Amino acid sequence: MSEENAQSQANQPQFAIQRIYLKDLSFESPNSPAVFSKAWQPEVGLEINTKTRSVGDDLYEVVLTLTVTVKSDGDSAFLIEAQQAGLFLIKGLEGGQMQHTLGAFCPNILFPYARETVDSLANRGGFPALGLAPVNFDALFAEQMQKQQAGEKAEQQH
């Protein structure tokens, strides 16, 4: 391989999953066993958050937090909070590309793991699996960027 080819490959963006792991997990069922004697009519609330931090040379930790609140017949059935994390090697990306990778691409990779954890934990708590619907992290990221830009414009006007 020529030196020129080696140099051009070194400048190419690189992305690799180093590890996917469960960082934190919580389950609460405050009204059990009474909740099991009522008709199961679940009202599911889902809150999604992500956090990103640099942990070394080109290594980034992304933590996807799912908070699932389920009520049935007006009573709290259970609450699950799962922090699914990943360690990613990312080289050669800057600015908007890096923000998109950390804010949308990585959470997209982590979500199926978090969804499986939530389903499994609901089952272990005596409840049916939730089968959370897929999430469009690209759309959530775009919405967040629009809000951030609108906030910056508002600050500039004051």
Rank of each mutant, 00 (worst) to 15 (best):
S2N: 08
S2C: 06
E4W: 04
E4H: 12
A6T: 07
S8A: 12
S8F: 02
A10N: 02
A10Q: 04
Q12H: 03
P13G: 02
Q14C: 00
F15W: 07
A16Y: 09
I17S: 06
I17L: 05
I17V: 15
I17K: 09
I20H: 11
I20Y: 07
Y21T: 03
Y21M: 03
L22P: 06
D24C: 00
S26L: 06
S29P: 00
A34M: 09
A34I: 02
V35H: 00
V35E: 05
S37P: 00
K38N: 11
A39K: 11
W40D: 00
V44W: 05
V44M: 10
E47N: 14
I48F: 09
I48Q: 05
N49G: 14
N49C: 00
T50R: 10
K51F: 00
T52H: 10
R53H: 07
R53F: 04
S54D: 12
S54V: 11
S54M: 08
V55K: 11
D57L: 11
D57G: 13
D57P: 05
D58R: 10
L59M: 12
L59A: 04
Y60L: 04
T65R: 13
L66M: 06
V70M: 00
K71Y: 07
D75C: 04
I80W: 10
I80F: 09
Q83H: 13
Q84C: 03
A85E: 11
G86R: 01
K91E: 02
K91L: 01
E94V: 01
G95V: 00
G96M: 13
Q99H: 15
H100F: 14
G103K: 10
G103Y: 08
A104S: 14
A104K: 05
A104M: 08
F105P: 04
F105H: 15
F105K: 12
C106G: 03
C106L: 09
P107E: 04
N108P: 06
I109R: 09
I109Y: 09
P112T: 00
P112G: 01
Y113E: 11
A114L: 11
A114D: 10
E116S: 15
E116A: 15
D119R: 08
S120T: 15
L121W: 10
N123P: 05
N123Q: 15
G125H: 05
F127Q: 06
L130Q: 08
A133N: 14
A133M: 14
V135D: 06
V135E: 10
F137Q: 02
L140M: 08
F141E: 01
A142Q: 14
E143M: 01
Q144M: 12
Q144V: 04
M145A: 12
Q146W: 05
Q146F: 04
Q146I: 02
K147D: 10
Q148D: 12
Q149H: 11
Q149W: 06
E152V: 03
E152H: 08
A154C: 11
A154R: 13
Q156F: 10
Q157K: 15
